[in-house]
């Protein structure tokens, strides 16, 4: 099939960017979206043009590296699918496709479609952990956890940290990302010990990074390639409020 892609090209973090259109022939429907871009890049290299820079690593939907907004939707039109697992069979001959990077103040563009997501790391560093030194753990079966509870923690823990929630949110809010981690750990007995400190620290770190605020539109949930529920944002709100109202530290 033949398609036209409009791609955001930006030479560097400080450079201005713009959309550039490329016509591409002989696209195979079995190609993944990123393979289509590889294919386009090969043709650009052949012409002596710099290839389009975009992030990807595992290409099996789990590392969270790929980050393209396709026609306004992070990871493209397929539900619960990262862009590396999106295949060209979902597009039609002659289609025009717009490809842009995640857009948020907290995700500055480094080049073309590559963005800097270190803000997400910094939020995790603020409290997304359980403070147990190696070697000091009790036997794993000493902490019984009901299947339902463990499954729910797993639902929250499934976040791949891609940032699609931020990209999809009209306000560029990171609450689904933060809510998932706060909830994952707050749902487990191991995470109870530090849950108050964690909820406050992570929310404050999120605010400090300049993400927007949640207005409960749930675009994040709809765009999340792992289908993480906004229920975890509610849980984070609860955890945060509880921590502030009942915590002993000021």
């Amino acid at each position: 099939m033949r398609i036209t892609v409009h791609v955001w090209r930006q030479a560097g973090p400080q450079e201005p960017g713009k959309m550039v259109a490329y016509d591409l022939d002989n696209v195979n429907e079995h190609m993944s979206f990123l393979e289509m871009l590889d294919f386009l890049n090969e043709s650009l290299i052949a012409k002596g043009e710099e290839p389009i820079a975009f992030d990807s690593d595992c290409r099996e939907g789990i590392c969270g590296m790929c980050s393209l907004v396709i026609d306004g939707i992070p990871h493209g039109p397929e539900k619960e699918t990262t862009v590396c697992q999106l295949h060209m069979r979902h597009f039609h001959d002659g289609q025009e496709i717009f490809i842009e990077p995640w857009r948020a103040k907290s995700f500055p563009v480094l080049k073309d479609l590559i963005i800097d997501r270190s803000s997400l790391d910094r939020i995790q560093q603020a409290g997304g952990f359980i403070s147990v030194n190696t070697g000091s753990a009790p036997d794993a079966n000493n902490i019984p956890i009901g299947k339902e509870q463990a499954d729910r923690a797993m639902d929250a823990a499934a976040c791949i940290g891609c940032g699609a929630c931020v990209a999809a949110c009209k306000n560029a809010s990171a609450m689904l990302f933060v809510g998932a981690k706060v909830s994952h750990l707050a749902l487990l007995p191991q995470g109870q010990v530090e849950k108050k400190r964690r909820a406050i620290a992570m929310v404050e770190a999120m605010d400090a990074e300049g993400f927007g605020n949640c207005t409960n539109q749930y675009e994040c949930e709809a765009a999340c390639p792992k289908g993480i529920s906004v229920e975890f944002i509610a849980k984070m709100n609860r955890e945060y409020l509880g921590a502030q109202l009942s915590g002993r530290s000021s």
Binding site: V69, E100, R103, A104, K105, G210, G212, N216, Q217, A222
Partner: peptide, 23 residues
């Protein structure tokens, strides 16, 4: 703040499911 959180808007805007009132 929400407006400031996305200084460069998408060239192609789309919405997956959010209701008009919510937006």
């Amino acid at each position: 703040e929400n407006k400031a959180a996305r200084p460069i808007p998408y060239q192609k805007e789309a919405c997956i499911q959010a209701s008009l009132p919510s937006r």
